[in-house]
Amino acid sequence: MTETLHRTPLIAAGLLMGAGLGGFVDGIVLHQILQWHNMLSNQLPPDNLVAAKVNMYWDGVFHAAVWVLTAIGLRMLWAASRRADVPWSGRTFVGGLLLGWGLFNVVEGLIDHTLLGLHHVYEYTDDKQPWDMAFLAFGALLLLAGWGLVRAGRHDTAPRAAYQA
């Protein structure tokens, strides 16, 4: 009996983990190490200790949320690994990770930077738009790369059990 194969559970797991890890890259690199922006820094500029600590609080809420996203992705990966109808493919999974990171950048960039103006990518300049556009373009590139890898992975058809000795 041939069973229909489903690749979407593995892609979904990669997508959520990629989005979560992409959120951590944003929070750790852009918020904490480079200190280019904080979550609400366009509305509450961190120009005194109180405002900086309030922004730190909302950065923490953001980090907690992307942690939950990563944990849900990990749970999905665990469930997908135990299904015989899900082909086990590194290309598909890494493609999903890149898709997730790209999707996070595009969705967060459009909602937080462009529509709501909660913060901008680089706030120590008068012209913030080029930085926001570069962030979106990077997200689009990640989406393209992820899509390409997911497509390449469609030739992988063996389930995880096939790789076990």
Binding site: T8, P9, I11, L15, L16, A19, V61, L69, G73, V107
Partner: peptide
């Protein structure tokens, strides 16, 4: 809180939709 969580909720919905698509 809701505004801050909005992008994450959108991504979560896409991921869950994809997972349960079959």
């Amino acid at each position: 809180l809701l505004i801050l969580l909005l992008p994450i909720a959108v991504v979560l919905l896409v991921g869950a939709g994809l997972y349960f698509a079959p």
